[in-house]
Amino acid sequence: MSPKLYHFPISGPSRGALLAARSIGVPIEIEIVDLFKKEQLKESFLKINPQHCIPTLDDDGFVMWESRAIASYLADKYGKDDQLYPKDLKRRALVNQRLYFDSSSLYVKIRAICFPIIFLGVTEIQQNLKDDLNSTLGFLDQFLSESKWVAGDNVTIADTSIYASLSSILAVGWDISKFPNILRWVQQCESLPGFAENEEGAKAFGEAVKKNLKQ
């Protein structure tokens, strides 16, 4: 039985878990949980995940959440080799560092901009939030100045996670022309399995933000 992913394509972390699964090559059964309809608060979903967040994975009865933990688990369990999540301790530590960078910096700063626009009636992007995200993108650009991919010279689950986050804000129209290494890497990411599927969700996210932004 394929692992089942409770998924909402607009959510960056949810796309991050799926994009990792696509690179890993494990077949995934998808069940959509529509956050806009608050389906995550249904009794049946709360029973499997009291934190009621997306994505949530059910692997033959083993239920877990947190997109980056899911990606790590799937790569360890179903990866054809260890390229996407290296067993070598230093390389693995670097992948983890980048995953935590995404979790606590990049994704958080993108969310700080977009969540109030989608849900709270905000219609403009404050300058301090803009600066915050750009300074985080500066770090990402620097990481990418040292290697082809975000955690070395091979694609890893740090790339799929970070790209899923970044593609959300790119779909809003964020200017990354000042970050040449990110620009180069974004082009490389077009070769990731599941890229088109991710773009579709990111586009819907971008539209949800843009329709509430004052032009």
Binding site: M64, A69, I70, S72, Y73, D76, K77, Y100
Partner: peptide
Amino acid sequence: DPKARALVDQRLYFDIGT
């Protein structure tokens, strides 16, 4: 063990992200 480790990772991400 992959499942036990996944749960620890999940909690670590709960700590940092939530």
